[in-house]
Measured scan of single mutants.
Amino acid sequence: MDVFMKGLSKAKEGVVAAAEKTKQGVAEAAGKTKEGVLYVGSKTKEGVVHGVATVAEKTKEQVTNVGGAVVTGVTAVAQKTVEGAGSIAAATGFVKKDQLGKNEEGAPQEGILEDMPVDPDNEAYEMPSEEGYQDYEPEA
């Protein structure tokens, strides 16, 4: 019985440690998101679009440190934060509304985080759909 109880105690310690790591990862992701939003706020009209992409990228980098179902929630929060940063930029006159959601080359930025393969159960990952990809044929 002692062996059984000791095993359960060790398992509990492992769960607590994993929860603490997840909590730490979420806190880091939130900190990076805040950094990115402050970065966007300090940019001029020309830099705002690039700044919004930076927020998304920093958040995406930190999301990889967070495991399990938390990833889905962090990704949703990050996307809403990026959308909010863009709205703030438009409201303050840093950028025109028609410039939001495009990178410096004018290509749409939507789907940055949505296409990231995420499995809350950590069982399997699927690649994003290939609808947006084109076949590449090298020139002879």
Rank of each mutant, 00 (worst) to 15 (best):
G132D: 14
G67K: 11
A30S: 01
T75N: 08
A90I: 04
K23R: 08
H50E: 04
E20Q: 06
A107H: 11
D115S: 10
M127F: 14
E13T: 10
S9A: 03
F94K: 00
T64H: 05
T64Q: 03
A140H: 05
Y136S: 10
E46K: 13
G41L: 06
T33F: 02
S129T: 08
T64D: 05
D115K: 11
A124I: 03
M5S: 04
V52K: 00
V48L: 08
A30D: 00
V77D: 03
G86R: 12
D135Y: 13
N122S: 13
V37P: 00
L113G: 13
A140Y: 08
P108T: 15
P138Y: 13
S42C: 13
D115P: 12
V118G: 08
D2L: 08
N65Q: 05
V77L: 09
A76E: 10
K32P: 01
Y133W: 07
E110K: 02
E123W: 01
E57W: 06
G132W: 08
V118F: 05
E139P: 14
G47W: 07
N103M: 10
E57K: 11
K34R: 14
L113W: 03
K60H: 09
P128Y: 09
T44S: 07
A124P: 13
M116A: 15
V66Q: 03
V26K: 00
A11S: 00
D121K: 11
D121W: 03
E123P: 01
F94W: 10
T64M: 14
E83Q: 04
E57H: 05
G7I: 04
T59K: 01
V40N: 01
L38T: 07
A56K: 11
D121V: 14
V82D: 04
E13V: 07
Y125G: 12
V71G: 03
V3E: 01
A124S: 13
K45R: 12
Y133I: 13
I112W: 15
N122R: 13
N103W: 13
N65C: 13
Q62L: 06
K60R: 12
V3S: 03
L8K: 00
E28R: 14
N103L: 07
I88Y: 13
L38R: 14
D121Y: 15
P108G: 08
K58C: 01
A27R: 11
P128C: 10
H50I: 15
V15M: 12
G73N: 11
G36K: 08
G41R: 14
A90K: 13
E131S: 08
D98K: 11
Y133N: 14
A140K: 15
T44N: 02
V48D: 00
V77H: 04
D98G: 13
G106P: 08
A76V: 12
K21N: 03
E104A: 06
G47D: 04
K32I: 13
V3F: 14
G106E: 11
E110D: 07
G31N: 15
T44L: 06
G132R: 05
V66M: 11
M5I: 00
A85N: 02
G25K: 14
V82R: 08
T75S: 05
E123Q: 07
V63M: 02
V16M: 11
V49C: 09
K34M: 15
A89N: 02
E105S: 13
D98M: 10
A11H: 01
E83V: 00
V49G: 04
V55Q: 00
A18H: 04
